[in-house]
Amino acid sequence: MSTYAKIIVLGSPITKSNFKLHNDNKRAILPSNSGSYHDRYALYEQEIAYIARSQNPNIVLEEGLIAILKVYYKSEKRHPDTINITKSIFDGIEKSGLIVNDAQIRSIIVEEFYDKENPRFELELFGESDYSLSYSIKKNNVKKEKKIYTSLKRNITVPKTKTKIEINSGNRKTCSICNKVVNPNEFITADKGKTLICNTCFKKLY
């Protein structure tokens, strides 16, 4: 029985940490065919699941695991928070059947790199029955240039979609999927209130 697996998924990693949508039973869901920008989160998990399984056929890791995750972003200035990227990745790995549950990850090291030509993530999983983790931190002999994050101006861009979100304009509230004006108590909110979905469109998501 194998106690090791490696997954490489090409493309810029994304995170779903700021998007939360729930059905009538209060269960979290990710729409994948609504035709909206938010579909990308579920589709990314599906891509991870497919690639993880195709790269590791017939392997199921059932024990406690050590994870080494290397994330390569396209840009050093504009990318998701690395601390949040692990959730999307491990949800996709769990859906692949390569692991039983992401609770198996008992130790993890995450490193951030930059590769403009080939953004990706590389994940290695090690079974604790065969492997152990050790690491060291040492003081640099030659001082490196500091990366000061507090002085960076974060550029916030709004994705171009065919839908329109109108929330704070009097009593008019517009569904972000069908773009129709909805009445009070006939919609749900998602993405920390930035997205409105009417009851009709919401029922089509699941």
Score class of each variant (00 low, 15 high):
D24N: 11
C175V: 06
L152D: 12
N118V: 11
S136K: 13
L205Y: 00
I48K: 00
V60K: 08
Y50V: 10
E166S: 15
N33A: 10
L30S: 01
K192P: 03
K162R: 12
D39Q: 05
D191F: 05
A190M: 04
N185E: 12
I59V: 11
F113W: 11
I109F: 15
K95C: 05
K162N: 15
Y41F: 13
N118M: 05
L21T: 01
E122Y: 09
P119D: 05
L30R: 01
K143T: 15
F126D: 00
E62G: 03
C198D: 01
T86I: 14
E47F: 06
T150G: 11
E47M: 11
I14P: 01
V60F: 05
E117T: 08
T157P: 04
C178W: 02
K70P: 02
E166H: 09
F113C: 12
Y50L: 14
I48Y: 03
P119W: 03
K6W: 06
S75Y: 04
K16N: 06
K203C: 01
E128R: 04
I105T: 05
N199H: 10
G127R: 00
I93V: 12
I137N: 12
I137R: 14
V9E: 01
P31I: 00
H38W: 03
K139F: 12
E166N: 14
T15W: 04
N25F: 06
Y50G: 07
K77Y: 09
T200N: 14
S32P: 04
F113I: 07
D115M: 07
F202I: 01
N33H: 09
Q46C: 08
V71T: 05
N141Q: 13
T3E: 08
V110D: 05
Y135L: 07
T161R: 15
G127Q: 00
L123F: 03
N199C: 09
P31L: 03
N118K: 11
E76K: 12
Y72F: 09
R154T: 13
Y44L: 08
G170Q: 08
K203N: 05
N183M: 13
L21M: 01
I105P: 00
T150R: 13
P119L: 06
K144H: 13
G193Y: 06
E76Q: 14
E47K: 13
T15V: 05
K116Y: 10
K162T: 12
H22W: 07
S32C: 11
G193N: 09
N56A: 03
V142D: 12
R40N: 09
T161A: 13
Y73A: 05
K204V: 00
T174A: 10
T195V: 14
T82I: 15
V182N: 07
V110G: 06
S54T: 11
D130P: 02
K70C: 08
Y50Q: 14
L10A: 13
K26H: 10
E166D: 10
N199I: 06
D191Y: 08
E112G: 06
G193T: 07
V182F: 13
R154Y: 10
R172D: 13
L125K: 01
L69H: 03
Y73K: 04
E47Y: 10
K138C: 14
S2G: 04
V142L: 14
Y37I: 13
T3S: 07
E45C: 06
T82K: 09
D102Q: 15
P159C: 04
